[in-house]
Design a binder for these strands. Sequence first.
DNA 1: TCTAATCTTGACCATTTTAGTCAGGTATGT
DNA 2: ACATACCTGACTAAAATGGTCAAGATTAGA
Lengths: 141, 141
Amino acid sequence: MKLTSKGRYAVMALVDLARFDNINPVSLRDISLRQGISLDYLEQIFSKLKKNEIVKSIRGTQGGYVLNKNPKEIKLTNIFNAVDEKVKTVQCKKESKRGCNGKATKCITHNLWDELEIHINTFFENKSLKDLLNNSKETRV
Amino acid sequence: MKLTSKGRYAVMALVDLARFDNINPVSLRDISLRQGISLDYLEQIFSKLKKNEIVKSIRGTQGGYVLNKNPKEIKLTNIFNAVDEKVKTVQCKKESKRGCNGKATKCITHNLWDELEIHINTFFENKSLKDLLNNSKETRV
DNA sequence: TCTAATCTTGACCATTTTAGTCAGGTATGT
DNA sequence: ACATACCTGACTAAAATGGTCAAGATTAGA
């Protein structure tokens, strides 16, 4: 059960963006340097964030990205959904009508995994970018 | 962020075992058939569960596995630890002394990932096999 | 004592996912 | 014109996943 770096990077990059996004757009190059994330990889990630209307882009010199919403409105859920970082505890979810494994019954631990998913997703729904900003000073070890 | 089937199977198998473990040991073959899990794969899983003293084995004909503890004492945490299903949100945890990425500072979202880990682990620590048993009747869809 | 059921161990492997890289573009401010 | 940025799609090495396969050791019961 682990978080992929795509999801982690997306959040890191957005926190970085939010901190420097006062007037001017922030370039991926700057984020890349500050956060130590590959520029090419960041471009993939921001492409998705843009499709999901979390950021806006400004092309050309002095261009970059800008948040498309108030940090308070951007929940972790939105970010993770955008980059396909989903919480998956069961495989049997897809077959909506039927039970698990094609049987007519739910597997005996099905309820548990559902509970777990909800538990994790609740965490994601209750955290916004704004919450993270308040807590994002690089703390010395 | 997903649960691996090793962890899922381990829990399913133990719930199954607990339900049928009244007097006689339960064979992996039976669990395999009831839960639809490959026998060979179950053997790998139970080898780890045994090392972690969650189950005991009885060899030979009429042999099988038996719980080694009261279901109330077996938490999800124990099961997941046994089969190496760990919750990992950051990679930078290993370098204990230093910060993240070899820097002297924590990455800006470090606290977030720590919180998330704790949130998930709390769930695992508060669920025992006994809790699952009460809720494990195969429910019709 | 033979045999079938069962646990035990370790090697092996195909597929999928991850975490990127690379190579080109296109738009735009100066 | 040109440098700076975004944009897009193809490609790939390495790791993890989800197993299979083979061979052996134990033991109950006929």
